[in-house]
Computed example of a mutant assay.
Amino acid sequence: MFTNLVHLFKTAQDAAERAYGNVLAAEKEAFADLGAGYTAMNTRSSYATERELQEFCSRLTGRLVMEASRKFAPGSGRLDIDKDAELKRFGLDVGKVLEAGKLPDLDGFWQHLEKTYAGDAGREVAFSQAAKAIINGFWLKPDSQIKRTSSAVVLEKRVSSEVSFRSSGKRRIHYGSTQTLALTLDGLATFAFKHDFGALGQHLKHCNVSDLEFETRQKMSFNGLDVVMFNDKWQFKFSHQVGDALSLFVSEYGAEHLASRDRY
């Protein structure tokens, strides 16, 4: 199925080359006195054609990985798959295959992705990735002391901000913090969906940190979570129910990564 797409693309390239050749022949016939060899019709070099095919195959393998990430993710959670790593595990070098005059086995590559990530396997990977993102985001270590009050379990994340030039008196997240914050929120969203905190998961998943503007000490309230935003940190106040479930989630899926952070 997917390998056939490459075959169809190659067939289209061959048909285009013949069509361009017909135009070039007609032009030469129309201008009997071409002289210096100038032509209005420019045909592609074999190198350009080969590069075009390789770029198509690269984009197609990328789309297969995107589809696997979407299809095998746990519910509304997130699953990250490294395209280059999976191609290496499967033993497919697209460039070398094309250089040999063959078509890459993309059907086999998809079967590899299915075998690796379908069902419980993909969910377990996604949960481990989420736990890692949470551990890294809150800079947790094996000996971290988690603050627990009478009403909340509190974690803090360093988030740099700067004065917004669009709205007077407001701040926006510094570009250097947007990616790590987004990864942390994605990890929390995957955790929330796993433990049936669906409304919280939806809020976290659709929180656009790139465009967010806020005032110092402003609070965002979700189901089971309040987030207080300061100039250089965000304070996450989880309800006891959510906080206790988060602690179990990190212990179950992030124990190995958490232990490794003892070296930092």
Rank of each mutant, 00 (worst) to 15 (best):
A130W: 03
S161R: 04
S144N: 10
R158N: 14
T184M: 15
G169T: 04
H174W: 08
S168W: 02
I146R: 04
Y175G: 04
A130N: 08
K157P: 00
H112K: 02
I135L: 11
S177Y: 07
K115T: 07
A130C: 07
S168I: 04
F127A: 02
K141M: 13
T180F: 13
L181C: 15
S177V: 06
G176F: 06
T180K: 14
R123K: 15
K132Q: 15
V154P: 07
T149N: 05
A189R: 05
Q179A: 14
L183S: 12
S150P: 06
Q145P: 01
R166F: 08
G176R: 13
R123P: 00
S151N: 15
E114H: 06
F193Q: 02
A189C: 11
A189N: 14
S168M: 03
V159P: 09
K115I: 03
N136T: 13
R171H: 04
P142H: 11
G122H: 02
A130S: 11
V159A: 11
A118W: 00
A118Q: 09
T178D: 05
F193I: 00
R123Q: 02
G122Y: 05
A131Q: 01
R171K: 04
W139Q: 11
G187M: 10
L183F: 11
V125C: 01
K132L: 11
R172G: 06
E156F: 10
A130P: 07
T190S: 06
Y117A: 04
A192K: 06
S128Y: 00
S177I: 08
A121K: 05
A133S: 15
E162D: 10
A131L: 08
H195R: 12
L188R: 05
R171T: 00
L140P: 09
I135R: 09
T116D: 02
S144K: 13
W139V: 12
V153G: 06
R172S: 03
F165C: 03
S167L: 03
G187D: 09
T178Y: 03
A118V: 02
Q145C: 04
S167V: 07
G169L: 02
L185H: 14
D143F: 10
K157T: 15
A118R: 02
S128L: 05
H112M: 07
I134A: 01
N136V: 14
H112T: 04
Y117I: 02
K115P: 01
Y117N: 01
S128A: 15
K194F: 03
R158H: 12
K147A: 13
E114P: 03
S151Q: 15
R171Y: 07
A131R: 05
E156V: 14
S151A: 14
T178S: 08
E124A: 03
L181V: 14
R158S: 10
A192D: 06
A133H: 10
I135H: 09
I135A: 09
A182D: 15
R158I: 12
K147L: 10
V154A: 08
L188A: 04
L188W: 07
V125F: 05
T149V: 06
K141L: 12
T184Q: 14
V154F: 12
L185Y: 13
R123N: 03
I134D: 05
K157N: 14
S167C: 01
L155K: 14
S161Y: 05
K115W: 04
T178P: 01
S161D: 03
K115S: 10
S168R: 01
F165G: 13
G176T: 10
L183G: 12
I134T: 08
S161W: 00
K170G: 00
